[in-house]
Design a binder for these strands. Sequence first.
DNA 1: TTTATTTGTGTATATTTTACACATTACGAT
DNA 2: ATCGTAATGTGTAAAATATACACAAATAAA
Lengths: 246, 246
Amino acid sequence: MALAENGKLANKIKTLQTIQSEVESSNRIALSVDCVIFGFDENKLKVLLIRSDLKKYQGRYSLLGDLVYPNEDLSAAAYRILKQRTGLNDLYLEQVETFGSVGRHPAGRVVTVAYCSLVNVQHHKLRILENDLHWHDVKSTTELAFDHQDIFDACYNRLQKRIQKHPLGFNLLPKKFSLRELQNLYEAILDIKLDRRNFRKKFFSMDFLIDTGEMEQDVPHRPGKLYKFNYEKYEKKKKKWFGIDF
Amino acid sequence: MALAENGKLANKIKTLQTIQSEVESSNRIALSVDCVIFGFDENKLKVLLIRSDLKKYQGRYSLLGDLVYPNEDLSAAAYRILKQRTGLNDLYLEQVETFGSVGRHPAGRVVTVAYCSLVNVQHHKLRILENDLHWHDVKSTTELAFDHQDIFDACYNRLQKRIQKHPLGFNLLPKKFSLRELQNLYEAILDIKLDRRNFRKKFFSMDFLIDTGEMEQDVPHRPGKLYKFNYEKYEKKKKKWFGIDF
DNA sequence: TTTATTTGTGTATATTTTACACATTACGAT
DNA sequence: ATCGTAATGTGTAAAATATACACAAATAAA
């Protein structure tokens, strides 16, 4: 980043001191992260929301976020929020987009970096006592506080695109899952119906699933086989070229 | 963004004033944008670089960037830089990623939002007098200042992925172009060779090219037809489903 | 034992991708 | 004008992939 070119087309060499003063003086902005935390439960895609505690947005829900600390990396701030809200470390986390419209926050200029995270809803206990923190059905739209609807849309769109070409979805499932669960997940995220036989054929032909030898338990019908995803094999054999196609 | 949850799991409603003071008090950070500006010239992919005027990085090149003004949207800051350096408005611009490691800038905490831009090198006059602003060949690696190599890599990777599924490339070409120019562009960006007949077949079958009826001029061989890209038709008929494939 | 439900499987067809060669056109040199 | 050079423009056969589609087997519940 070329702070030194600040405004005018400067040609001289600047010292670190000059730039430090530029950085420290005027142009400082509050920075936050907001997390779109997806879960998958009862064959529905969910997002973790909390009641906005800002008077202006009373009654509306908002994403989970916080200001970034002065000595904190952006992703560290996102992981801090995830840990705080879900109790989990090591979640899938991907930066999606930064939102910085001048008027986006009523308290002044706050630029926010949006992250998308995927969690297995089995693996955690929410502290749902506070401010109505809850898993919200993605298909039942609520008007979110701030520009959080835009942020959510950006993250959901990204998820829909990305899940088609990358093995993200498994983060939303138990380690061992049936093909039906996997297909339900894809259908929920993409909001489409898929042909069951072709779906199976596709995943088997990609050859990244490991048959665990175990079967589903406690299902009220013929139980299916349980699989794990083979991340090592994926890393070795993943496609590099998907072809030109608009 | 849920500033109100700052730190503790607050449960009470906060007033705007409370939050304003949080925003204004401590956690402010300098914010910049950096632009990875791509061009295409003599069948090579280029990036616009400038000599770093920071003593610490003397001799190295850096991307074009600047601090974001307090009342300026992020994309507005990026467009400002583009206008300043290329003289052009209305360039292709896409936000790519935000870089905010605590130690990334020697002058203190500076978080930067990276943008990728595509320009037709015919259409502008660079003000190349200043600080050795120049089109740098993407394949001849220079060690860039700051974390600009990471930023560049992120933008280049994004471009390589995106050009395969979206009609971006045309921003790097004249409005009217031959299929050979288009193929050269794809080969340069993706750094691969493509079969000429299949490349043509692919683009013709997508059916987004308009035959202008004109031919190349001043080529030392049989001239090719010139085409335009049909953005309207693309918007109507673009693919929504590319299939599950890793 | 019967019923309801879901798993697991294969094939035929259509579509897409890939590999590959030769005649045509224009320019430039002689 | 002729010839050499270099790139354009075009089609087909084979392989790979995607799609549509139906029935027997396994289990739980009644």
